[in-house]
Write a protein that binds this DNA or RNA. Structure first.
Length: 522
RNA sequence: GGCGAAGUAGCUCAGCUGGUUAGAGCGGUGGAAUCAUAAUCCAUAGGUCGGGGGUUCAAGUCCCUCCUUCGCUACCA
């Protein structure tokens, strides 16, 4: 088990409860992590919550609560979401943890030691009401020449003491890095945006705040807290031990991939690598900016009232159904659309009808006609060979290649084609008819199907771990076979000859029904 | 405004470096089968590949232009 694979999702900003976008990212990241484990890599998967910053502080104050208290509560919802959705994270990190503060201060000191931090003044148009600075170009002019923020609140020219990071110094190194590492930013559209942005020139970055104190204290400037992003990004290294020289740190850094939303690509592809360069640390190998989930093609927002609670969806349709839908229907990297009809249609067609029914009809035939004992193989026909080859090729080559490329929807498309081939094979061979005409042939056909179904279940584990495991359990497939390296090994005959007997098969993928329409609007 | 992405069958989308009759799934239609979660399999549905122009022996696939939608254009995260 060498070849470490370190993957992170973004750490969520918990000033609200988790929404479907958080669930989507967690599920996608989890599927990749699970795939790599089954692919023989030693995996570390980190997720968590990013709890500092102005907004958390404001939200808590608005509720009349202690910020820390609110953070504890909100973070727990995200942790709970991970548990519910079968997210196999190795570490759930909170930026409020002591070790994380220590790590953030350590990286700060490294930037400082490298001469990249200097104290200056941040000047700009500041809205007291929004507690935010705005660019001149964003402002509008109200009555009497009063300058207004995009939110329509008054702004005034404000000067604040701030530490700056010499981001400008890294313009060239970053561009060189992008050029030398074409896979660093994916998909390409995000890379273009980033390159153009950096080519446009980088200004030094204000990396401390004095206007609030909910954050990591700047070493030596106790009235400053660190810019939230500097602290948040540090999670990726503090999670595995930094600044301590731990075994995990040595094994897993630099990260294999950071999975993030397309809205925070810049922080991960400009600021983060610049910070790391300054700190003298290796850079992550890849940053992948996935798309957004739209509700019937529209952005989800509180004002539109179309925000979807992922817990409710999991409750309604099942965790694996939700996971399958999101990863099959949405091309990873692009925006995707969600609707109850779409999930019901997709899950019924693929999981219930095609794959679930394939397993059910095959296992039922074995249960009824072979007393549950796995049938012997009496020499394969060309049809059997063709199917075994098609499924074997999909499971051992094509599907892992797609997963490795983070193309989960394509992996599943390939998977479905193999499922279709199995169904076509069942119909053509008609083992129920062979029962009377050629029992031995029936046994071979059922054995062939059993092998294929097991392989398909093994391959789909990263997507629907719960159901796949249940099916493999029903089928008695040994643990050490349940990975990409061994799925195609010679495990069937030993299992059959060992006298394994299946119980009466239980359907694992129930057909979904469209939930009844909500009554009356208003 | 600048830069970029996208516009392909009713729906959701594949189509890499240009090359035989433009593909898949879902839906629709017609058959077959009855082992199975009324699931499955086979066949099929006549889309000027956003409009126009151009390059080429050959363009959905390259160039120009127009239309439409979307993203980025730094200090909330």
């Amino acid at each position: 088990m060498s070849d470490p694979f370190y993957i992170t999702s973004a750490i969520a900003y918990p000033n609200g409860k988790p929404h479907i976008g958080h669930a989507y990212e967690a599920i996608a990241t989890d599927a990749i992590a699970r795939f790599q484990r089954l692919n023989g890599r030693e995996v570390c998967f980190v997720t968590g919550t990013d709890e500092h910053g102005l907004k958390m502080d404001q939200t808590a104050r608005g509720l009349g609560r202690e910020t820390r208290d609110l953070a504890d509560e909100m973070s727990s919802y995200f942790k709970q979401m991970c548990a519910t959705l079968d997210i196999s994270a190795d570490h759930f990190c909170r930026t409020t943890a002591d070790h994380h503060h220590k790590a953030s201060q350590a990286i700060w000191k490294r930037l400082e030691a490298n001469g990249d931090l200097y104290l200056d003044r941040y000047e700009g148009w500041y809205s007291v009401r929004d507690e935010a600075y705005y660019d001149e170009a964003e402002l509008t002019e109200g009555e009497g020449g009063q300058k207004l923020s995009p939110q329509g609140t008054p702004v005034e020219w404000t000067v604040e003491e701030s530490w700056f990071f010499r981001l400008s110094k890294y313009e060239k190194p970053l561009l060189d890095f992008y050029a030398e590492n074409p896979e660093f930013i994916r998909p390409d559209s995000r890379k273009n945006e980033t390159v153009k942005f950096v080519e446009g020139g980088l200004k030094d970055l204000s990396v401390s705040r004095t206007s609030f104190d909910w954050g990591v204290k700047v070493p030596g400037s106790e009235n400053h807290v660190m810019y939230v992003w500097l602290d948040a990004l540090t999670t990726y290294i503090s999670a595995i031990g930094f600044p301590d020289d731990t075994e995990e740190w040595r094994k897993f850094w630099p990260a294999s991939v950071h999975i993030i939303g397309k809205d925070i690509v810049r922080f991960h592809t400009v600021y983060w690598p610049a910070f790391l360069m300054s700190a003298g640390l290796p850079l992550p190998k890849m940053v992948f900016g996935h798309g957004f989930l739209l509700s019937r093609g529209e952005k989800m927002s509180k004002s539109l009232g179309n925000v979807v609670d992922p817990m409710a969806l999991a409750e309604l349709f099942g965790v694996d159904a939700l996971r399958y839908f999101l990863l099959r229907e949405v091309s990873f990297g692009q925006d995707g659309s969600y609707s109850p009809e779409a999930i019901v249609t997709r899950v019924n067609a693929d999981l219930a009808n095609s794959f679930g029914n394939l397993a059910q009809r095959t296992l039922s035939l074995i249960y009824k006609n072979c007393e549950g004992y796995l049938p012997a193989i009496h020499g394969h026909h060309a049809d059997d060979q063709a199917l075994l080859e098609l499924v074997g090729n999909a499971v051992s080559k094509q599907i892992p290649a797609h997963f490795d490329d983070l193309a989960m929807s394509q992996a599943l498309e390939t998977w479905m084609q193999a499922v279709f081939a199995c169904n076509a094979y069942v119909d053509m061979q008609a083992p129920w008819a062979l029962k009377k005409t050629d029992p031995q042939r029936m046994e071979t056909v059922l054995a062939t199907l059993f092998i294929c179904i097991a392989q398909l279940a093994i391959a789909v584990q990263p997507i629907i771990p719960g159901s796949a495991t249940k099916l493999l359990d029903q089928m008695g497939v040994p643990e050490d076979v349940r990975n990409f390296a061994n799925a195609g090994s010679h495990w069937y005959s030993p299992l059959a000859e060992g006298g394994f007997q299946i119980a009466q098969p239980q359907g694992l993928f129930p057909r979904l029904e469209l939930p009844a329409e909500e009554e009356g609007g208003a």
